[in-house]
Computed example of a mutant assay.
Amino acid sequence: MDDRNVEGHQHSDQHEVFRSLPFPFSDGGFPANLGAVVQRTVLDGVEPAREVIHTGDISWVVGDGVNDPNQPGAVVVTCIKHVVERNSSVARLASLPIGQVAYRENPGQPWLIEPHSWPEE
């Protein structure tokens, strides 16, 4: 998923959303106002979160791992807490190191972590 053009945005519940916040997080969990680029299928509960990326520029990306996130309208910027509400195991990834991706085949399976790099275009 390409998040290069994402900046802070307002969410529908009218609080500020930040693209990145100082890391590591002070309480070990995701801050309430931390934004992420999230695939709509994950946010809407159609698909589970299967990949969480903590990019090299300290932003966060959450995908379903099966649908193309680069399609028009496929992603939205929202608070990562909304992902955690639907996928509770994502909360354990708040300490995911910068430049790493956590992925899993399906819910209930362990998250595997490895260095992340964007595919060549």
Results as ranks from 00 to 15, higher is better:
Q109V: 01
S26M: 11
V61E: 05
F23R: 11
E47I: 03
H82M: 11
A49G: 06
D44F: 08
V83C: 10
Q10V: 15
R86C: 07
V90E: 01
F18A: 04
F23S: 05
L96A: 02
A94Y: 00
E16I: 13
P110I: 00
F30M: 04
V38K: 07
S117T: 10
T41M: 07
R19E: 00
W111I: 09
R86G: 15
R4D: 07
D64P: 08
H54D: 07
E121I: 07
P119T: 08
E16F: 08
P22H: 01
Q14G: 14
E51K: 05
P24S: 14
N70G: 09
G8M: 02
G108E: 02
E16T: 09
Y103S: 08
I80Q: 08
F25Y: 15
L34R: 00
V46I: 10
G73C: 05
R86L: 13
P97K: 14
V77Y: 04
N5F: 08
Q14R: 09
Q14H: 12
R19S: 01
G45L: 01
A49I: 05
Q71W: 03
Q14C: 12
H54T: 10
E7K: 04
R104K: 10
G63A: 07
P22W: 03
E121T: 11
G65M: 04
L21H: 01
H82Q: 14
I80W: 04
V90M: 06
D68M: 12
A36G: 05
H82A: 12
V84C: 01
I113N: 10
G65V: 02
H11R: 15
V52N: 15
R4M: 04
A36T: 04
Q109K: 12
P97F: 02
V76N: 03
D68K: 09
E105M: 08
G29C: 13
E120Q: 14
I53K: 00
P24L: 13
E85C: 08
R86I: 09
W60C: 08
G56R: 00
D3I: 09
W111T: 09
V6M: 07
E120W: 12
S95P: 00
I80D: 05
I98D: 03
A74F: 11
D57V: 01
R50I: 12
F25E: 03
R40A: 04
R40K: 13
I58N: 13
V84D: 01
W111R: 06
I113P: 06
I80E: 06
V6E: 04
Q100T: 05
N87Q: 04
F25T: 04
R104C: 10
F18L: 02
R92K: 10
Q39K: 13
H15L: 14
G45R: 03
V42N: 05
P97M: 10
R40F: 03
E47P: 06
S26N: 11
N87D: 09
M1E: 10
H9K: 11
R92G: 09
R40Q: 10
M1C: 15
I80N: 05
S117L: 08
V61W: 02
G8W: 00
N106A: 15
S89L: 06
G65W: 01
R104N: 12
L96V: 00
D57F: 02
N70F: 02
D27P: 00
